[in-house]
Design a protein around this nucleic acid. Structure first.
Length: 480
RNA sequence: CGGGGCGUGGCUCAGUCUGGUAGAGCACAGCGUUUGGGACGCUGGGGUCGGGGGUUCGAAUCCCUCCGCCCCGACCA
């Protein structure tokens, strides 16, 4: 049953996405502030769930939270050559305050390596101070030319980890720990979004990094979305900000730093991975509301019987299931079904007079729309049944997304094949080209190397572009 | 930055070509009837027509100018 106000995916995927954001009430355009959005309560609740899952993992891996200033002296940004080049075009500047021009303008942070680097240089003296493992939850601003709710907004929310280590190996271990145990683990287990872990090419790496690792997901239109990045910054920032320490041998050395972040863009990934033409679909583990209960009655007598049943049914749920009883008056059940479907609640329970008599409820799963996903089950054992079903839905969403990605991924051995494949999804190819080659391919196909997957077949093949033999495979795709 | 679209009650838009008392649907408020897949009736409130200037007896409508937002593309988490 097509929903009002939602464009079909097959008709216009981009418009469908915007419609979902609006209809599920996730965000509003901040029309008075260019490129920004308002995170409405429903959308912000998803962010809070993401924060919770990530924050737990960040802390479990030994990090602590702190907070640094929003404004950064402009000169700080200039200290690391590649970094300036990467970010200068998109920073917003504060030139006046208190009615006076500032002697040195501030920039609104586009990312915090520089200001954090400044403080780290003050705090670190000895190898005994290392590793320093700090994360911050913050907002940042990048003046992007073209914005899209959640996927790319001028201001966005994120976490950015900034760590300092005594050796290159330690920094590398940290970078990969975050990639695997924090980002990939969270995104796959909690968000049910399968990702490919890989290394960025020189062209795509973070401005100022030695190496950038990433997790890449495939959206339903076959395009890639970078869902998280973890950078080994080498000694670049340590040298720019003079982050040094004295080692065991009393020698002063530059430290090795890392930075890593994921943003509210993950909400976009969630939408574009699971949702359908009926609206938002949320994986149970991330859903702010996992189960909605719609009571059905015609008169006061029925109402009291139904509500009593609802109370006794939901009593056992507290602390186990995140649920909401939709007891709004003057709205028909049908209206409520539609509303909660659009908003992506994983399970809907209907309780009506017939259920009171029979000791049953109707249970409908969001990931299987329509009659197929709805059945009548006994009230007895319902809590366990729901918990099992939530887990089943979580797995089903992941499996479906993974199957979709596999179906839309193919190995290519010629440039023509690549051109065709990137229309559909990911093209896996042997690659021995240069950054220049990569740029040319992007101009011609709009596709970029999303990553060099960490998992490599280890076999030798011919680069489709240069014809050189190589063992390195990469993934080409169009990206968000 | 290039291309396109739009600006009229809260929302979606009609009205602009051809100037003549600002409209519809939805939403909202009240009352009543409804309620197992987007209910219905009656009543009601709500608009400096994006801003400024001009033409005219008269401008949402014609002219000039400024502003803003959205979509597509290049660039980017």
């Amino acid at each position: 049953m097509p929903k009002e106000g939602i464009t079909l995916r097959s008709k216009d995927y981009s418009q469908w996405y915007l419609d979902i954001v609006q209809q599920a009430d996730l965000a509003d355009y901040a029309e008075v502030v260019k490129g920004c959005i308002v995170f409405k309560p429903t959308g912000y609740a998803i962010w809070e769930a993401i924060q919770k899952g990530l924050d737990e993992r960040i802390k479990e891996t030994g990090h602590v939270n702190a907070y640094f200033p929003l404004l950064i002296p402009k000169s700080f940004l200039m200290k690391e050559a590649e970094h300036v080049e990467g970010f200068a075009p998109e920073v917003a500047e504060v030139t006046h305050a208190g009615g006076e021009p500032l002697t040195e303008p501030y920039v609104i942070r586009p990312t915090s390596e520089t200001i954090i680097g400044y403080f780290y240089s003050k705090w670190i003296r000895s190898y005994r101070d290392l590793p320093l493992l700090i994360n911050q939850w913050a907002n940042v601003m990048r003046w992007e030319m073209r914005t899209r709710p959640f996927l790319r907004t001028a201001e966005f929310l994120w976490q950015e980890g900034h760590t300092v280590h005594a050796t290159e190996e330690d920094a590398e271990r940290e970078t990969l720990l975050i990639l695997h145990d924090v980002y990939a683990d969270f995104v796959e287990k909690e968000m049910a979004v399968p990702v490919i872990r890989g290394l960025k090419t020189e062209k795509e790496k973070f401005a100022g990094a030695l190496r950038s690792y990433c997790i890449e997901a495939m959206m339903q239109d076959g395009r890639a979305l970078q869902a998280g990045t973890s950078h080994n910054l080498g000694q670049n920032f340590a040298k720019a900000f003079d982050i040094t320490f004295t080692d065991q041998n009393n020698t002063v050395q530059h430290a090795w730093t890392t930075s890593w972040g994921v943003s509210t863009r993950l909400i976009g990934a969630l939408i574009m991975t699971h949702s359908d033409d009926e609206g938002l679909v949320l994986p149970p583990r991330i859903a702010p509301i996992q189960v909605v209960v719609v009571p059905i009655y015609k008169n006061d007598e029925e109402k009291s019987a139904v509500m009593a049943a609802v109370d006794s049914i939901t009593k056992a749920w507290k602390g186990r299931i995140r649920f909401k009883v939709d007891n709004r008056e003057n709205l028909t059940p049908g209206f409520k079904y539609n509303e909660w479907e659009v908003k992506g609640v994983p399970i809907r329970i209907e309780v009506g007079p017939k259920d009171v008599q029979k000791g049953s409820v109707a249970i409908a799963r969001r990931d299987i729309p329509g009659r197929e996903g709805k059945s009548f089950v006994p009230q007895e054992g319902l809590t366990e049944r729901i918990e099992a079903l939530l887990a089943e839905i979580q797995q089903a969403l992941f499996d479906r997304a993974l199957a979709f990605r596999k179906e839309r991924t193919a190995e290519v051995s010629t440039y023509d094949e690549l051109k065709q494949q990137v229309e559909k999804g990911f093209a896996v190819a042997y690659w021995a080209g240069t950054t220049e080659d990569e740029k040319r391919i992007q101009e011609e196909t709009k596709a970029t190397i999303r990553c060099i997957p960490l998992e490599q077949p280890g076999t030798v093949g011919k680069c489709f572009y240069t014809g050189k033999e190589t063992t390195q495979q990469v993934i080409f795709s169009r990206a968000y």
